[in-house]
Design a protein around this nucleic acid. Structure first.
Lengths: 170, 170
DNA sequence: GGCTTATCGTTGCCCTAAGCAACGATCACG
DNA sequence: CGTGATCGTTGCTTAGGGCAACGATAAGCC
């Protein structure tokens, strides 16, 4: 149990971190409106998935995800394949072009971060990632989020199958 | 110097943390549109200050700060005192009513955080705060960016859906 | 088989946050 | 005392995000 005084500070820092995110968004190419990078990254890391699963990863509304995906599809970076077992669903798949774009985005963020975080140790970055990740988990089911994590045994789980994690770039 | 692979993950977590912030904003009273809490807290912690200083703390544009402050002034939670040594400036001062409101906000966030972070140790929260704070510091002088300066990346839009965002070239 | 209900994704509409630019007012300095 | 810099406010614009309604499909039930 953490001290209450900390919570105040935590909330403030949470807001401040938004500025960092905006800074990162600023160096993105104009046709990559922010969230795009997150979408591509998630598809790259976790492989093909459905809209609902992606929305869950992004922790935003399905409508938002839908628009982001439409944007990316229009540019040929991901494709919406029909799901053979459920014609309502669409399977999101990262295209080679999308991987290229992701590479570009990755290069941009890496450049900026390497510059800004030059005096951070590997361990510190890792800790920050870990703690933020944990924070998000702790807030997981805070609201009526679409797509309860129910994975029926007979449903072919698409996650992490079609495409292997692919840490191709580095 | 941190490993590059981490940067990708860091960016993603940075986005995800936005969801936590939104969750926190959701439990605020309707007349406290998000940033208000941050403003009140900063004034409470750091004492009276000028607009520019506040904007710096919030890491947002002066115009944004100005509107937030106007909102809070209208509700009597802070006041804009004239600066005796510079008639252009205005000194922001937290009123007793503002302190009350801050107390309320504080109670709300504390309640939610205590609930969500019940299994966090005092030390972990402290570390997260410290690391986020440090992150922000590392990004300190990123502000005066005149918008999209880089943009060699443009991709032809492929029509697939009925909607055509197509803001590719402007 | 048909009927009803639940689920998946898309879209329309709205709100808020944030930035840029222009402006009025004031300082600072020649 | 005029010229330029600085502080803050306001108008305009954009992007991100949510809610609700909808069409299409799946799953249950009679």
């Amino acid at each position: 149990m953490a001290g209450q005084a900390q919570y105040e500070e935590l909330v403030r820092q949470l807001s401040a971190v938004g500025a960092v995110r905006r800074d990162l968004a600023r160096i993105m190419p104009p046709d990559c409106p922010a969230g795009s990078g997150a979408v591509l990254t998630i598809l790259d890391v976790h492989g093909d998935m459905h809209m609902s699963k992606l929305a869950e990863h992004l922790a935003v509304d399905l409508s938002v995800t839908s628009r982001q995906v439409a944007h990316l599809v229009a540019r040929g970076w991901i494709e919406r394949l029909p799901d053979p077992v459920d014609k309502r669903s669409r399977i999101l798949h990262l295209t080679p072009a999308g991987l290229d774009r992701l590479d570009d985005l990755f290069r941009r963020t890496t450049q900026l971060l390497a510059e800004r975080l030059s005096d951070w140790s590997d361990d510190e970055v890792g800790q920050l990632i870990h703690l933020m990740s944990r924070l998000r988990e702790s807030f997981g089911d805070c609201r009526p989020h679409p797509g309860r994590v129910h994975a029926p045994a007979d449903t072919p789980v698409i996650e992490e199958t079609t495409r292997t994690p692919a840490n191709a770039h580095t």
